[in-house]
Amino acid sequence: MARTPNDIEYLISQISLGDREAFSQLYDATSAKLLGVCLRVLNERANAEEAMQDTFIKVWKNADRYSINGLSPMTWLITIARNTAIDRLRAQKPVSDINDYSDSLASKLPSPESNVAHSSDMKRVSECLEELGDDRGAAIQGAYLDGQSYAELSELYKVPLNTMRTWLRRGLLSLRECMDR
């Protein structure tokens, strides 16, 4: 099960050539993580399993566009899973699109280093969220992991939407500043 980012990247490149065995291996290596991400957003097992299936269908169909999107392989998979789950959560016509994270525009992303950055990002983001203080850190985490929108967060925190937005934006800028340090 333990796969390095390079392994995952290799499997994605094989999948882009139509390799079903590579697809099967990618599923075995990553489905539990991606189901965890979907379940966190959807809070309902059957729904989450569906979202995870949809995620893998997008992966199969768009693997050829992975190499140009500038994201590390796990981030790419997790981003698709999260957005697919949020589409389902909001039960609306899908707003997210595979283009969001694989459009060729992003090929201009200068990201040889972004692949390397991922593992350190994992620790870094939690350190920086901690630094933000409990409320802001929790709100950003809620937005990412639970898929909450400003509307939902303002309800949850019982503040007007604009107040919520001003407050969270400040948190996001501090987070960026911390991540870039």
């Binding site: 981030t75 994992m122 992991l145």
Partner: peptide
């Protein structure tokens, strides 16, 4: 687009804390 990708990469680190859940055998 670059800014968005950079954020996705940063936020992606949060998924590290999400516990994996093994899918049902019938799903694959």
């Amino acid at each position: 687009a670059r800014l968005v990708a950079q954020w996705q990469e940063s936020f992606g680190g949060m998924a590290h804390a999400v516990a994996p859940v093994t899918p049902l055998p019938a799903t694959k």
